[in-house]
Measured scan of single mutants.
Amino acid sequence: NKASVVANQLIPINTALTLIMMKAEVVTPMGIPAEEIPKLVGMQVNRAVPLGTTLMPDKVKNYE
């Protein structure tokens, strides 16, 4: 099972992601793969992401 990116804290809307905000966890359904964490640093979320929520591609601005 592959790990996904999960919010390590509440991430407010329009916040630029940092390493400390994210952790890798095996979750269902799968979100953004954990190996993409370095790519996500500096990207902004387009909505608030509660603690423990899986980061889905549609929650990150300009994620492809």
Score class of each variant (00 low, 15 high):
M21Y: 05
N1G: 14
A7K: 06
L55R: 03
Q9H: 04
L51M: 15
A48W: 10
E35I: 13
L40W: 01
G31N: 02
Q9M: 14
I37Q: 03
T28F: 13
K61G: 04
L19K: 09
T18N: 03
L51H: 13
V60S: 04
T15V: 10
N1I: 14
M30I: 11
A24R: 03
V45L: 08
V27I: 05
E64M: 14
L10Q: 10
Q44I: 14
M43W: 02
A7R: 01
A3Y: 10
V26T: 10
P29F: 09
D58S: 10
M43P: 00
A48S: 12
A24I: 08
P57D: 03
P50A: 11
E36H: 11
P33C: 12
P38T: 10
M22L: 10
K61D: 08
A3E: 10
Q9G: 03
P12Q: 08
A24M: 07
V41F: 00
V26W: 12
G31F: 02
N46F: 08
V45W: 00
V27K: 06
A48R: 11
Q44K: 11
S4G: 02
Q9P: 03
I37W: 05
V26C: 12
A3C: 12
M21F: 05
I13C: 14
A24E: 07
N46Y: 09
T15E: 06
D58T: 06
Q9I: 11
M22F: 07
N62P: 02
S4D: 02
P57W: 15
G52F: 04
E64K: 14
V60H: 02
V45I: 05
L10A: 12
N8Y: 07
I32S: 02
D58N: 11
T53W: 09
G42D: 03
V41I: 12
I13D: 08
K39W: 13
P12G: 05
E36T: 05
K2C: 15
L51Q: 15
K61Y: 10
P50F: 08
G31V: 02
T28G: 02
A48H: 11
A3V: 05
T53M: 13
V60K: 01
E35P: 07
P29R: 03
A7S: 08
V49K: 04
R47W: 10
L55M: 05
I13T: 10
A16C: 14
E25W: 10
K59F: 15
P38W: 10
P50D: 08
E64S: 14
A34L: 05
M22W: 05
A48Y: 09
E64R: 12
P38E: 10
G31L: 05
K59D: 15
R47L: 10
L19Y: 11
N14T: 05
A3F: 10
N8F: 08
M30S: 12
K61L: 11
M43C: 11
M30D: 06
L55Y: 00
A7P: 01
Y63S: 00
K39G: 09
M21A: 03
V41S: 00
K59Q: 15
I37E: 02
P12E: 09
K39I: 12
Q44V: 14
I13M: 13
V6Y: 05
M22C: 07
V6Q: 00
I37C: 08
T54D: 04
P38S: 10
G52P: 01
E36N: 10
N8A: 15
Q9R: 12
S4C: 08
I13W: 07
P29E: 04
M56L: 08
I11A: 01
L51C: 14
A16Y: 15
N14V: 06
L55I: 13
V6I: 12
N1E: 13
L40Q: 01
K23H: 06
K2T: 12
V6G: 02
V49N: 04
A48V: 12
M30P: 13
A48T: 15
T15K: 06
P12S: 07
L55K: 03
S4R: 03
P57C: 06
T15L: 06
A7N: 02
L40M: 04
V26R: 11
T18C: 08
T18E: 10
M43Y: 10
N14Q: 02
A3P: 12
P33M: 06
M43H: 09
V41N: 00
E36A: 10
M56A: 06
N1P: 14
T53Y: 10
I13Q: 11
V26L: 11
V27N: 00
V60R: 02
P50W: 08
G31D: 00
N1R: 12
N1L: 15
L51S: 13
K2Y: 14
P12C: 09
L10F: 15
I20V: 13
L19S: 07
N8L: 08
